[in-house]
């Protein structure tokens, strides 16, 4: 008999996970917008990964005979530069393709830093309560008292304008949201029977925090991660636009917009296209985030 019980327990887990995944996918795929967002996002990942093969030109190569060429469908445009060239003769399409790399990179780095720091702080605050909790939450209140973009700007002013510093600044500004979410979820879980049971068996504190409790708090965190991925791209582009993010000639979309500002009335494509790229990417991620929330958050499932 004991053998049989053990067998059952071992069998149960993968089946349970598969079933969970299947249920998740059933909810997620019901939402057409979310699936569209996912497809678009996957396409961008592929474009970013294979930029070297897809892009017709190098992103920073200047063609001195082709300044401000319009896209191919307009007079004076050619298929050599399908989306035209910018003021110093660089191919717009290639720069946009390489720009996808930067945006995805920014999103990944910012979310990773904010998520890890935020989850650890939130877990500590919610698990230990008391003074440590008060101290952490006050600190988060202070960060949240500043408008996020302003604080990021000032942080970059301290650290010096560059893409890396912009990402650090945005991560610092974003992590209070993770702390709050994690803390609230941990406090909800702490009173449940399985936590008490684990304590009674004598599970060590660290294991209790990270292995027993944390996995049950993941749903809101995943949703938040998707949303802050898109905010990170927007904020980094805004910092780039203000000259405080990636520096020229980096083909980052926000920085491209900043460089194109003086040509807005002469060459619409240098301004319009990088913005379109930002908007579509952010929109796709937000669509996906909405779908994730509906599929993962049972409280909101009904509406």
């Amino acid at each position: 008999m004991p053998d049989g019980v053990a067998q059952q327990v071992i069998d149960f887990r993968p089946v349970g996970r598969m079933a969970l995944m299947r249920e998740f996918w059933a909810y997620f795929s019901e939402n057409r917008g979310a699936v569209m967002g996912l497809c678009f996002f996957v396409a961008i990942i592929i474009i970013a990964l294979f930029a070297d093969f897809i892009a017709p030109h190098l992103p920073n190569e200047q063609y001195r005979e082709a300044f401000l060429r319009p896209p191919f469908w307009q007079d004076g445009g050619s298929l050599e530069f399908p989306l035209g060239t910018d003021a110093v003769g660089r191919d717009m399409l290639s720069r946009l393709i390489y720009g996808a790399r930067f945006s995805l990179f920014i999103g990944c780095v910012v979310v990773s830093i904010a998520l890890v720091v935020g989850v650890v702080l939130g877990l500590v605050a919610g698990f230990f309560r008391g003074r440590i909790d008060t101290a952490i939450m006050r600190l988060m209140d202070i960060i949240l008292a500043f408008p996020s973009l302003l604080l990021a700007l000032v942080l970059v002013a301290i650290l010096g304008p560059s893409l890396i510093n912009a990402m650090i600044a945005i991560a610092i500004v974003q992590q209070p949201h993770y702390v709050r979410l994690t803390r609230a979820a941990v406090m909800g879980e702490m009173s449940k029977d399985y936590v008490t049971a684990a304590r009674v068996i004598g599970v060590r504190r660290l294991r209790l925090m990270f292995v027993t409790i944390l996995p049950n708090c993941m749903a809101p965190l995943i949703v938040q991660a998707a949303l802050s991925f898109s905010t990170a791209i927007l904020d980094a582009a805004a910092l780039g636009f203000l000259g405080m993010g990636a520096q020229p000639p980096t083909p980052e979309w926000g920085t491209m917009l900043a460089e194109a500002r003086e040509f807005i009335l002469r060459a619409w494509w240098v301004v319009t296209l990088p913005g379109c790229a930002i908007l579509l990417t952010v929109l796709a991620i937000n669509l996906m985030g909405d779908g994730l929330r509906d599929a993962l958050d049972p409280k909101l499932k009904r509406s």
């Binding site: 898109s230 927007l234 582009a237 805004a238 636009f241 926000g254 917009l257 500002r261 807005i264 301004v271 319009t272 990088p274 913005g275 930002i278 908007l279 952010v282 929109l283 937000n286």
Partner: peptide
């Protein structure tokens, strides 16, 4: 999802 600095330029 709008990058408002671009929206303003448009």
């Amino acid at each position: 999802s709008m990058p408002i600095f671009w929206w303003g330029l448009l």
